[in-house]
Design a protein around this nucleic acid. Structure first.
Length: 956
RNA sequence: ACGCCCGUAGCUCAGUUGGUUAGAGCGCAUCCUUGACAUGGAUGAGGUCGGUGAUUCGAGUUCACUCGGGCGUACCA
């Protein structure tokens, strides 16, 4: 074995061999266990969040596989409508100077497919590098044939159930991508802006209570005034209530619009008068509906002013309540340019009262980054109210459980006032809506044009045109767990693996995806008794990985870390190129470069997949944010090396030796019996931690056992046996070494698949472990049984005895350390107050003590002999003395004793205080009181011995 | 404004149903190239658990209030 663990040598070939051997596929035996991966976006590449979640999924899958389950980890990507279309549009613009319109819809879609086939494999490659034990033969894509069929079927059935409808409504319009987006894709951000006060003249000689012949409205969006169809005042407002029913003459367009009384107008805010623009504001739209105000659309798809307005009634039907005429000087101006022009015009006309600075919240498209425009368009909606009920109940009655529990609140609060879901998108890339229009604009929904014609007996001369829009990507993602298993066919896979067992995902997509998946799954999947089937039983919510400063990782900030760079390492130059190349905002490049140079002055070292995975499970606590810490990764890289070297030691001392495989005589040392028990306790902890989804606790238990028990103590304790023991003793220790290590590797395998497989292949040969081989006779750790807790292997006596041995050794090391005695100097030790138990332990463990504490001799003093002046320590009732002559000076030892004495005195005072408290003694449970009493007795006994020593040394 | 989460060692974080002296990793200090490992070993320093109060024999843990930070939702003409 190499002296240092080198992960790059082993990982890729191991993965290939696992995949070739078919170890990732379900075995078809045992209870099923299934995880559906949250499908990453096909345009993307994996980031730390993916690596985090996938490590957890793989750990669960590997654990369950080794527990004998019929495991399936289902993978795939989603087609990411907007993102993908954008990527390909940019590509053809850069390479050919063309737009998608130059291509035309079909040719463009071909182009997208071509791109997908060429570049869509990045994620798969990354997942393989992470060691994910995914059944690749079942990989799916939301746009593939089967899933498209499922999407179509769902749409048609929802329409038939009156759960999908089409309507002209105000939507969040993205003027950059020319598509509607859902509420969830809108990010509200604080922004500095202005509030303009505009004067609207009253018509027909009307006057306000103050005798003015105009009203002043306040607005943050003056350009929308072109679409005003009313002014609202509060019906209780003494200033204006008499004007309700009167009209104002809207400047610039000379439109007579009514003054309405509505509670929406707040007397305290602004001027108390609110302009109402039903076609360009969600609140105004509601007010408009209440007062039957027409909706006047004044913006085109780019959010530029129209040449002539579009006028609709409150139901969205075209109407002629007003002239469609708009001032020609604004036609074609972008909304923000128009804003300036309109304000200037008001100023010119003397109608601009004042301009105030104003903090406002503006809606931005989360992908385009531009301000969203509420726009009146025809869109398809899912009526979610009916679907939401069962989805809420499934969580309420515990069929579906969130881990950690507190996320259920978030889920309930969102489900409580859930809005209808706008599912149509004005894109080309996606599932085309299965709806056709006849020449009169009547809409038909069906699985195909033929079906529509047949079902509706449409004359063959009538031309039908399919809806141009596609569905929201999340619509297909919502079907993920069951459509990937073959739905709408009632497949065996569906029967075997659905409901899936656990969903592992970030809390940030609980609404986008989790809630919608629950709704859709329950509506479309029923068991034999007709009961709605859930998509998964548990939802494990991971935290979000942030950078070392606690900032969210994002491309635009340039602080993203590619998990592969953690694994393979990357030079500073390459990292800089990766982070600053291909940037949307090149001016950020300098800042990112500076930050990167500071954070990674020497680039990133290679750490290997196992270290990355171990780090990720170690940080998987219940918290919501995880600050990424390179030091932590480095620490666990060191841990893999520690395991490697411990194994190296084991193999060096066992390969080509008798390890007790055959029934030769074997004697287990105290250390052997102790480590076996310690290992069992670790097994128990790991099982419990996995059951609780506490991967941090599992990792901690493995780390603690491996480093602090196995390496620090056990391996050291084997040395005296292997160097000086009898054949039977050596055999016993070798046997324990290989068997504990072999089992430990299986215990760690779900988290660290590569290093464990590599070492296991060699170690298992030295044991009698019943290896599970495949038809070719090959064996892999990943399909072996997981260690099970066996209480009978925990030898309490051995554990207690070895604890005593450790304390003894630590006491001497402590004196060495504090007195600056070289570790290489063998020390003579004298013992006082030796009980028969101490004597037994001493007799049984001479070799261990001398070797690990580096002792020259151990002598027991006679009952009344205080021995020479010595540095001392207390182990239980036993006093350990190291004669000071020539080694230790008086003052140093006195100082050391004084420190220990003070500490004991404090403990005693505290404990005595408790025990003297009448109430404590009468009310606390007996066990607690006994503990306190024992503690007090121990402390007092230790104290008296130390005081004795103090006196003796003082007397020198 | 409402809801949720967080505040524990210099840093990043654990701390189950209240019960010994509050833990880990990293960092720090001193010492050590002994034949698994310097990506290592030994020893040590470092915390009145954001604050105030309440409940209790006993509070990092429960409750109320409060300060600081984060997230979500709503509102802002």
């Amino acid at each position: 074995m190499e002296k240092t663990f080198n992960p790059t040598d082993i990982e890729q070939s191991l993965y290939q061999s696992w995949e070739q051997q078919g170890y990732f596929s379900p075995t078809g035996e045992g209870d099923s266990y299934c995880i559906a991966i949250p499908p990453p976006n096909v345009t993307g590449s994996l980031h730390m969040g993916h690596a985090f979640q996938q490590t957890i999924m793989d750990t669960l899958i590997r654990y369950q596989r080794m527990q004998g389950k019929n495991t399936l980890w289902q993978t795939g990507c989603d087609h990411a409508g907007i993102a993908t279309q954008m990527v390909v549009e940019r590509k053809i613009a850069a390479e050919e100077g063309k737009t998608r319109h130059d291509y035309g819809r079909e040719a463009f879609i071909d182009k997208v497919w071509q791109w997908k086939n060429e570049s869509g494999g990045t994620i798969g490659k990354q997942m393989r590098r992470l060691g994910n034990s995914i059944d690749w033969s079942r990989e799916r894509f939301t746009m593939d044939e089967g899933m498209s069929k499922a999407v179509q079927e769902v749409f048609v059935r929802l329409f038939e159930d009156d759960l999908i409808y089409r309507g002209k409504r105000l939507v969040n319009w993205d003027p950059k991508f020319h598509t509607a987006i859902s509420d969830l894709e809108v990010e509200n951000k604080d922004k500095k802006g202005h509030m303009w006060h505009l004067r609207y003249p009253l018509a027909d000689g009307a006057k306000t209570a103050e005798g003015k012949d105009y009203l002043v409205v306040a607005t943050t969006r003056p350009e929308t005034m072109l679409g005003d169809t009313g002014v609202a005042v509060n019906p209780e407002d003494p200033r204006y209530k008499d004007l309700i029913g009167k009209k104002v003459l809207l400047p610039l367009v000379n439109r007579l619009i009514p003054i309405v009384g509505d509670d929406h107008a707040d007397m305290e805010k602004g001027t108390g008068c609110v302009k109402i623009t039903p076609a360009h504001d969600f609140n105004d739209n509601e007010v408009g509906k209440r007062h039957n105000l027409p909706q006047i659309n004044i913006l085109d798809k780019n959010a530029a002013i129209l040449a002539s307005a579009e006028i609709y009634d409150t139901k969205g039907e075209v109407c002629n309540a007003y002239s469609t005429e708009l001032p020609s000087e604004f036609a074609g101006l972008d909304r923000f340019v128009a804003r300036k022009a309109i304000v200037a015009k008001f100023d010119e006309l003397g109608l601009l009262v004042e301009v105030k600075d104003h903090d406002l919240v503006a809606p931005y498209g989360d992908r385009s980054g531009v301000i969203i425009e509420p726009l009146l368009t025809d869109q398809w909606y899912v009526r979610v109210e009916k679907l939401a009920g069962p989805a809420v109940d499934a969580v309420k009655d515990g069929q579906i459980e969130f881990v950690p529990k507190q996320y259920e609140n978030l889920y309930f609060s969102w489900m409580k006032d859930i809005q209808d879901w706008c599912i149509s998108r004005q894109l080309w890339w996606g599932h085309r809506i299965p709806a056709w229009y006849d020449e009169n604009g009547k809409v038909y929904v069906g699985r195909s044009e033929e079906e529509v014609r047949a079902n509706n007996t449409i004359d063959e001369n009538m031309v039908l045109k399919q809806d141009d829009d596609v569905l929201d990507t999340w619509f297909s993602s919502a079907l993920w767990t069951f459509s990937t298993l073959g739905w709408p066919e009632q497949t065996d896979d569906l029967k075997t693996f659905h409901p899936t067992d656990v969903l592992v995902t970030g809390f940030d997509i609980i609404f986008f995806w989790v809630a919608r998946m629950i709704m859709m799954t329950m509506h479309f999947n029923k068991d034999e008794k007709g009961k709605a089937q859930i998509p998964f039983k548990k939802i494990y919510m991971t935290g979000l990985i942030r950078d070392e400063n606690g900032d969210k990782m994002s491309k635009s900030k340039g602080n993203v870390i590619d998990p592969l760079d953690m694994i393979d390492g990357i030079s500073l130059e390459d990292l800089l190129a990766k982070r600053t190349g291909n940037m949307m905002q090149p001016k950020m490049a300098a800042k990112i470069e500076k930050l990167t140079r500071k954070e990674f002055p020497n680039g990133i070292e290679a750490h290997g997949t196992d270290a990355l995975r171990f780090t990720l499970t170690s940080v998987a606590t219940t918290g919501r944010d995880i600050s990424w810490d390179m030091k932590r990764l480095e620490g666990y890289r060191n841990f893999t090396n520690k395991l490697w070297n411990a194994s190296r030691y084991v193999l060096m001392n066992t390969e080509e030796h008798d390890c007790g495989k055959d029934a030769n005589e074997m004697e287990l040392s105290l250390a052997d019996r102790w480590i076996i028990g310690q290992f069992q306790q670790t097994v128990e902890k790991v099982h419990q931690a996995f059951a609780d989804y506490r991967f941090d606790i599992a990792s901690q238990a493995l780390y603690e056992f491996t480093w602090n028990q196995f390496c620090d103590w056990y391996l050291e304790l084997t040395k005296p046996v292997l160097f000086k023991g009898t054949d039977a003793q050596k055999r016993g220790t070798r046997h324990t070494l290989v068997n504990v290590l072999e089992s430990l590797l299986r215990l760690m395998h779900p988290i660290m698949p590569f290093i464990t497989e590599t070492i296991w292949q060699r170690v298992v040969l030295l044991t009698n472990f019943a290896v599970n081989t495949n038809e070719q006779g090959d064996a892999s750790i990943m399909v072996q049984s997981f260690p099970q807790f066996d209480a009978s292997l925990c030898d309490e006596q051995a554990i207690a005895d070895l604890e005593w041995v450790k304390q003894f050794i630590v006491a001497i090391r402590n004196i060495r350390g504090e007195m600056d005695i070289a570790p290489s100097k063998p020390l003579p030790v004298l013992l006082k107050n030796v009980s028969s138990e101490d004597q037994r332990r001493l007799d049984e463990n001479q070799q261990f003590l001398s070797s690990l504490a580096k002792l020259e001799s151990i002598d027991v003093l006679a009952a009344n002999d205080n021995g020479p002046a010595s540095a001392s320590a207390v182990v239980g009732d036993l006093t350990v003395l190291i004669p000071m002559a020539g080694l230790i000076d008086k003052e140093a030892e006195l100082a050391r004793l004084a420190k220990a004495v003070t500490k004991l005195e404090q403990d005693i005072a505290r404990t005595q205080g408790k025990l003297n408290n009448e109430k404590f003694v009468s009310k606390a449970p007996a066990a607690v009181i006994d503990k306190e009493k024992a503690k007090l007795a121990d402390a007092q006994s230790s104290l008296s011995k130390l005081v004795e020593q103090q006196a003796q040394i003082n007397a020198l």
